[in-house]
Structure formats: C-alpha cells, structure tokens
Amino acid sequence: MNKKLYKTIGRPFINLPSTQKNKFNNKQRNVGEIEMSSAAHMIGITGICPEGSLIFCGKHNKAFPIIRQLVRMSARPFVLLGTRRDLSEESCLRLLNIEWEDEIPKHNLPEGNGILVLKPGGETNLMLKDCLVNWDSHFIIMCVGNGLQVDQEILNLLNGVGNYMLLTEMLYRSVKATDGIQLTPEDLLSSMDYILVSSIGTAGKELIKVLPDYEYEKITNTTDVSLHRDEPHEYKDGRHHRNGGGVRFSQSKSLESRCIFSQDDLVKMQDSNSMLIYNARYAHTWVAKIVG
C-alpha cells in the first residue's frame, strides 16, 4: 500500500462514522504529551526560561525540581520571598543554595542567593512596592497565598523587572484589590508568559478562561424506525398484507469552540500526578509527568 507523502488540507467530503477515540478532536486540541520526564527535559521541550513571568499552581514540593533547574539556567542569583508558613525550616525550598537570609526588604539586595522571610501585613506590602523596582539584579521567586498577596501595583512592578516566578497553593488567596482596583485570578494568569499547574482546586474555571480554544467537532447520531401496514390485497391463494418496516441510521457533524481542557480534565490530571504546562508566548500546551 502506498503511503501519503503529504497532509490534506480541510475536511473530507465524505466522513466515516466517528469512533469514541475521536481522532479529529484530539488533533485539533494540539496538546503535547511528555511522559516521565526530568524537569530539565520538560523545560527544554516547552521553552520555559527564567527571563520571563511564570506562575506555578500547586504544592511547593511539586515545583521544587522546576525551580532548581530554572535557578541553574538563570544568569542571576535568586531571591526567595515568603512568609514563615512558606519558608519554615522544614520547607523543601530551603534545600536551594541559600547564601543569606533577612526579614526586611531592602532597596538593594545583597549579592548571591538569598531568602526573605516576611511578616504579612500592610507595612510589608508598602516596603515591597518601594523595593521591587530595584530587584532586577535577581531572579525573584515569590510565594503567595499564605500571607503575601499580589495586587495590580505589585504585578506591574514585577512585570517591570521581568524575571520572576510566583508560587501559589491557593490561587484565590493570592490576589487582592487595592484602591478600588480589582485583580482577579484570571487577570493574574493572563499576564503570565508561562503557566504550570499540578493542582488548582476551585480556580480551575479561571484557568480555563485563559487557555486556548479549539474547534470541537460535535457528533449527533440519530436512528429512525418506520413501520407500515397496507390494506389487504386479493391473491389467488388468499388475502395478503404488505406489511414492513425499516431502520435508518444517520449522523450529523458541527463545529463549536471549546477550551482544550475541561474542569474534569484538570481534576484527572491532578489525580494522575500529571502537570499542565502552557507557554503563552507561543500558545502551546503540554501535559507532563515530572520525575526527580
């Protein structure tokens, strides 16, 4: 049998009945799969880099291999921000190579890798807003949702620096409104170059609004049964009824726009220990299993 050396464009004039595998829809979704990969391999495939804005939704231990690799890739030292709840002595994040530690944000950060254990509150927020603009010398890794939050002003300052990563175990707790300006989880996700999700909980609907759509082929199958009974007719051997029936199968197809993932899909990924990676710069999406 001859193999096709090219791909046809458009939809075929005649389609065979679609199966449950639904190859057309899977192709349209265009979601890559990365099986049992190291963090370094996954980052290489997906194009993530520390010179951009990144958010990780999920437990810190799931993020740790990725953070470790991004720190290795960065030309800058890192500064790790969080509350005592985020950065306790038992935190896996303390396994990073930390050279200094402080509890008060400074305008000019010390050289080398450091950690800031901050006290939640309005005073800390004001100090952060005053200092963040000067922190472009470091790769900023900020834990939010356990006392620290992001508002529109802090987000603008972080985007001005450019090289940062947000870690959140609870997305809804990570944003707040100030001066009447509401920052929503959708706004936060929409401003990211890269989104990584190992678990997102009830904020899954916010993520779905940000992820790409695709043209979903909807299949409708119908079955018609018809029966008929005629008046009797005279034959030489007696009376005879022309009775009969028939069954007709038909299928119709239509296209509708859907998100590449549903909330059920996100729950299944979490249960199977899979991670969603979305590169917003190129609108490409992968599902990966990270080991190590």
Results as ranks from 00 to 15, higher is better:
21 K>C: 08
64 F>E: 05
167 L>H: 08
163 N>G: 09
265 D>S: 13
168 T>S: 15
258 R>Y: 09
37 S>I: 04
12 P>N: 14
189 L>C: 04
157 L>I: 02
171 L>D: 06
222 T>S: 13
129 K>W: 00
118 L>R: 14
200 I>H: 01
122 G>L: 06
42 M>G: 11
15 N>M: 11
164 Y>S: 12
173 R>I: 00
65 P>H: 06
4 K>M: 08
56 F>G: 04
212 P>A: 03
23 K>M: 13
83 T>W: 00
241 H>V: 00
82 G>Y: 01
69 Q>K: 12
52 G>H: 09
43 I>Q: 00
37 S>R: 13
207 L>Q: 06
26 N>F: 12
81 L>N: 12
100 W>A: 12
290 I>T: 04
49 C>R: 08
279 N>G: 10
61 N>D: 12
129 K>F: 01
126 L>T: 05
278 Y>F: 08
238 G>N: 13
274 S>M: 11
227 L>K: 14
247 V>D: 13
193 D>L: 04
176 K>G: 02
256 E>D: 10
145 G>L: 10
141 I>R: 15
256 E>K: 09
255 L>W: 03
37 S>K: 13
98 I>F: 02
110 P>V: 06
284 H>P: 01
113 N>F: 10
135 W>A: 04
113 N>C: 07
268 K>S: 14
39 A>N: 04
225 V>R: 01
113 N>K: 07
224 D>M: 02
246 G>E: 13
6 Y>G: 05
3 K>N: 14
192 M>H: 06
51 E>R: 02
24 F>G: 02
249 F>E: 14
182 Q>F: 15
272 S>N: 11
281 R>H: 10
26 N>W: 12
230 D>I: 00
231 E>A: 14
288 A>F: 03
277 I>A: 07
251 Q>K: 05
105 P>I: 10
257 S>L: 11
195 I>L: 14
292 G>F: 08
33 E>R: 13
207 L>G: 04
109 L>Q: 04
156 N>D: 07
